[in-house]
């Protein structure tokens, strides 16, 4: 029993496979970064639709957000990888396939954007009406008001919540090996098959993910602290 436990950690094993593991980590970061950007952009668009004056647009925004939020990432990932290419093939008459990385970014970005819709909405609604009226009274257009007055304040308010979404998204990237994206988890499972030593590999990987996410949240917290000291956010 103790023997097995002693094998939980084996840094030497990681050192041995360092190049392949680093390559995997790079893919993980890459998928995360693109999916995060996509999630933020789509989340903002859906949020603006939800806050629109037109009922039709509000309905579309709400439907989109609910669809994304209430579908498991696992299912969405496989669905995006296989169904849209079929539809595109049928529409264009040319055989279309998604590169796994593209499907991964699309699926994770969509899934996460549903949550960002709500985060943005809460952040924007928390900006006092008077700040918007002040901008309007100075003849600032809607777009300018959104960009210069509402979003800078909303983003600062949203940051702790957005941090949680990013962490969830980062964890969700572990699913993408399912459609054979060669991320960190994919490489670990390949090495496991080679070495037949899953315990040290998986505990080491857990440790790696923890380290990255922890470093991210600490640095963001530093950031917000600085804002707070300047008297706002």
């Amino acid at each position: 029993m103790l023997d097995t436990l002693a094998q939980l950690f084996d840094p030497g094993l990681f050192w041995e496979y360092r190049t392949i593991l680093l390559a995997g980590a790079a893919v993980t970061l890459y998928v995360f970064a693109f999916a995060a950007v996509l999630a933020v952009v789509l989340g903002l668009v859906a949020c603006l639709l939800r806050l629109s004056a037109w009922r039709g647009l509000r309905w579309i925004g709400t439907f989109y957000a609910e669809l994304c939020r209430n579908t498991p990432e696992y299912v969405l990932l496989i669905w995006i990888h296989y169904v849209p290419p079929l539809v595109l093939t049928w529409l264009t008459g040319v055989r279309v396939n998604f590169v796994p990385v593209v499907s991964a970014v699309l699926a994770l970005g969509l899934a996460s954007s549903g949550y960002f819709t709500e985060t943005f909405r809460a952040g924007i609604l928390a900006v006092p009406r008077g700040h918007v009226e002040a901008a309007r009274s100075l003849a600032m257009s809607r777009g300018l008001t959104l960009r210069r007055i509402i979003l800078p304040q909303a983003v600062r308010r949203m940051l702790p919540e957005a941090m949680n979404q990013f962490i969830s998204l980062f964890k969700a990237t572990t699913l993408v090996s399912l459609i054979s994206v060669t991320d960190l988890m994919y490489q670990v499972s390949i090495i496991t098959q080679e070495q037949m030593r899953p315990l040290p590999l998986y505990s080491g990987t857990a440790f790696l993910y923890f380290g990255v996410i922890f470093a991210m949240s600490v640095s963001v917290r530093r950031f917000t602290e600085q804002w707070r000291r300047r008297g706002w956010a």
Binding site: H131, E133, A134, S137, Q153
Partner: peptide, 19 residues
């Protein structure tokens, strides 16, 4: 907004932008 440029307003709650 073109007409508004000639009219400025001061509010009860100041409404300065905090950022």
């Amino acid at each position: 907004n073109r007409v508004r440029m000639d009219v400025a307003m001061v509010f009860q709650q100041f409404n300065l932008w905090p950022h």
